[in-house]
Design a binder for these strands. Sequence first.
DNA 1: ATTATCTATAGATCTATAGATAATGC
DNA 2: ATTATCTATAGATCTATAGATAATGC
Lengths: 197, 197
Amino acid sequence: MTRGKDGKAQTHERILNNAAVRFREKGIDGIGVADLMKEAGLTVGGFYKHFGSREDLVAEAVEAMKNGWDPVFADAETRGLGGAPLFDALVDGYLDVQHRDSPGAGCLFAAIAGDLGRAGEKPRAAATHKLERMIDRFARVFEDRRPAAARAAAIFAYSALVGAVSLARATNDEALSREILTTVGKALKRLVRPEKT
Amino acid sequence: MTRGKDGKAQTHERILNNAAVRFREKGIDGIGVADLMKEAGLTVGGFYKHFGSREDLVAEAVEAMKNGWDPVFADAETRGLGGAPLFDALVDGYLDVQHRDSPGAGCLFAAIAGDLGRAGEKPRAAATHKLERMIDRFARVFEDRRPAAARAAAIFAYSALVGAVSLARATNDEALSREILTTVGKALKRLVRPEKT
DNA sequence: ATTATCTATAGATCTATAGATAATGC
DNA sequence: ATTATCTATAGATCTATAGATAATGC
């Protein structure tokens, strides 16, 4: 309706999904409203008919961020995978060089945890929601433990994963970067991996 | 000499140490050159007599960042501490709520790893240097293992620590935040702690 | 008539530079 | 005479808003 061929909701989604990628790639403050609108094929003036403020966009974008694990979980579910093999797939996928080199499509915490800690209440609330969901989902991988222990294992392993990719991206020494990824992967499989299922 | 009562080197240090705090508190792009100079008691015009560019300041500030562990290591050395007690002191200190709430005085990676991953070559080289030194120092805590295993333990534990504080800062749910800190602390002590010394 | 999007711009940033000033060293 | 710091400003951002325009629905 009106000017654009698409509906407003689709335009909204387009702005959002692009912002979700760009914020992870360039940091929350790394790209401006005008450029985000341009990348969505629009001009800056329409922005505030879609979002109350830039911060509102950040919060919505955080909610919209598909974390790289979604396909792994989905695939595991269809194939009836769980326990150790699923854990290994999640760890390997997270610590892969491709994930390290594609922050825009990857874990929001590895990419912008620091920015989120300094962000307003709305983005932080959205991040909290994402984090809770991620922990719950990851905890179910530890079928061999009681709920409290499974949750603890998920929190511990997830912290190590987030830290590893954050550090692997921060250094410009490729050898060190890969060493971090492989070392943390091995340690997690040795110390945290659930029993075979 | 000239205008200021202090020497140029002291002024340089003053700008640097303040920037090192502010960058961790507000993110690398969270404060401008003019405000940094004002906080050091100067005006913006003098900045480029001290630093070739803003990015050069970032790199120097990263080098200058005292990580919160320095006093713990120093204290341990004077008291002849090592092994398990030192490991516990480092883990507890890192995962303390006070560290979480004082990014300006804390670990640079927990505060700005994301920013560093997007920064220029000079800041990333400085970060790499810091990271290497941190790993080497932390690895010496694992006196009970061979060098390669000690290094792996240091990389793994450090990743978990950085991830835990990053996540604990990103959420606005105080209970979840504390749960992350205590859970990761317990897991590290159970799974990675060196033998008693 | 409504509304999604457009153009244009206000006002507040930010990095970097030019040229003046004031304190020291010869 | 030198130089560390100052004031002032250019030019490029950025968020947010005002008002015009063009497409749809009554």
